[in-house]
Amino acid sequence: MTHSARLANSHFGEWEIYVVTDGPTLGWPACDFRRTQPIPTLAERTAALADLGYEAAAGAVWEWMEMDNGDTGDVALLAAFDVHPIREAS
């Protein structure tokens, strides 16, 4: 099953990554990078997802979106990436 992993600025401007699942919003797997800068590297994002039990889906690429809060508000960045649960060795 494929899910969407999202990298976003939290309400405090710190980077966090979470996986959107079928469960309730408060139950989504998440990792907080506890910093505002720099943006987490690909290696950091991959490690955080592995810690949450997920890996990249075949052919997945990060897609970045800019979300504005009006003409004078701060801009928030959001990136999305398809993932699936890590398969356990048989």
Rank of each mutant, 00 (worst) to 15 (best):
T2W: 12
T2G: 01
T2I: 08
T2N: 13
T2M: 11
T2H: 09
H3E: 03
H3G: 00
H3Q: 06
H3L: 02
H3F: 11
H3K: 09
S4D: 14
S4C: 15
S4Q: 15
S4W: 15
S4Y: 14
A5L: 08
A5M: 00
A5F: 13
A5H: 06
A5K: 04
R6H: 06
R6E: 14
R6Q: 14
R6W: 11
R6G: 10
L7C: 04
A8H: 05
A8F: 11
A8P: 05
N9I: 00
N9W: 09
N9M: 09
N9R: 11
S10E: 11
S10Q: 10
S10A: 12
H11D: 05
H11V: 10
F12T: 08
F12M: 02
F12E: 10
F12Q: 07
G13D: 11
G13C: 12
G13V: 07
G13Y: 11
G13R: 12
E14R: 07
E14C: 07
E14F: 04
W15C: 13
W15N: 07
W15K: 13
W15S: 02
E16D: 02
E16V: 06
E16M: 10
E16P: 06
I17M: 03
I17S: 04
Y18F: 14
Y18K: 10
Y18I: 04
Y18Q: 14
Y18L: 14
V19T: 04
V19A: 09
V19I: 09
V19S: 06
V20Y: 00
V20N: 07
V20F: 03
V20Q: 05
T21F: 02
T21P: 04
T21Q: 03
T21C: 01
D22H: 11
D22M: 06
D22C: 01
D22L: 04
D22I: 00
D22R: 08
G23V: 07
G23S: 15
P24H: 15
P24V: 11
T25K: 04
T25N: 05
L26S: 13
L26E: 15
L26N: 11
L26Q: 10
G27E: 15
G27M: 04
G27T: 08
W28K: 09
W28C: 05
W28T: 02
P29V: 01
P29Y: 01
P29I: 01
P29G: 00
P29D: 06
A30I: 13
A30T: 12
A30Y: 09
A30D: 11
A30L: 06
A30H: 07
A30G: 06
C31L: 13
C31Q: 08
C31V: 15
C31N: 12
C31H: 14
C31F: 14
C31E: 14
D32L: 09
D32K: 14
F33D: 03
F33Y: 02
R34L: 05
R34P: 01
R34W: 07
R34V: 03
R34H: 13
R35P: 00
R35E: 01
R35Q: 00
T36R: 06
T36N: 04
T36G: 05
T36M: 00
T36C: 06
T36I: 12
Q37H: 05
Q37G: 01
Q37N: 08
P38I: 01
P38G: 02
I39D: 03
I39K: 03
P40N: 07
T41K: 00
T41Y: 00
T41A: 02
